[in-house]
């Protein structure tokens, strides 16, 4: 069997995390390294204490060996997230978040909680935002028809979450329309 059944319908959260780890994040290195060519591009040189942009996977690796500090992205702090949460609860649409914010936030908070001021507050804000947005996705289901549903500002993890159900639902609606049409033509 080429692909186990759970992997067929959709990507898994772990795979999304792998994809998101290709994004760049700023670090303060604690160890020096010459500029090095990698498959995805050249990174470095690392010169403590100058900030440097590296992929998240590299930052994770360095952080776990205590060889760097992660500089939090400008959207991953208490003020910004509080602002977004207010928007999320007061406005009908989804507020604008980085496309892979859920994955990036999880990876960074998991490996480098000590580099964030108030990581627990950030976690709880992220959770509140997630729940507010989830409620909106569920409402979106009532607008579903057989032709198109527009989902501005929806993020990758959220798309992945609603994918199986929404696709199935739209498929059923398509079938219903297909079956209804010949009857309209008949009389």
């Amino acid at each position: 069997m080429a692909l186990p059944t759970p992997l067929r319908a959709s990507v898994t959260p772990a795979e999304l995390e792998l994809i998101a780890s290709e994004q760049l994040v700023e670090i303060v290195p604690l160890v020096a390294m010459e500029r090095t060519a990698f498959i995805s591009g050249a990174y470095g040189p690392l010169r403590p204490p100058t900030k440097c942009k590296v992929p998240i996977w590299m930052a994770t690796n360095l952080k776990l060996k205590k060889k760097c500090r992660v500089v939090p992205p400008d959207w991953l702090n208490v003020e910004f997230l509080e602002g977004r949460l207010t928007q999320e609860t007061s406005e009908a649409g989804f507020s604008e978040m980085p496309f892979r914010f859920a994955e990036v936030a999880k990876v960074l908070l998991d490996v480098a909680p000590d580099d964030f001021p108030n990581p627990d507050k950030i976690r709880s804000l992220l959770k509140d935002i997630r729940e507010a947005r989830q409620a909106k996705s569920r409402e979106g289901l009532s607008k579903l028809d057989h032709s198109e549903l527009s989902l501005p500002n929806l993020c990758s993890m959220e798309i992945n979450e609603i994918r199986p159900f929404f696709i199935r639902a739209m498929g059923v609606l398509t079938d219903l329309v297909k079956e209804a049409q010949p009857q309209q033509d008949a009389p």
């Binding site: 579903l144 028809d145 057989h146 032709s147 198109e148 549903l149 527009s150 989902l151 501005p152 500002n153 929806l154 798309i159 929404f166 696709i167 739209m170 398509t174 329309v177």
Partner: peptide
């Protein structure tokens, strides 16, 4: 679109729609 209307997507738009569209 299948219902006969037209869909114009601006840059950055995310939509759920049948593949053939």
């Amino acid at each position: 679109l299948p219902d006969g209307s037209a869909l114009t997507m601006p840059k950055g738009q995310i939509s759920l729609t049948p593949y053939y569209v």
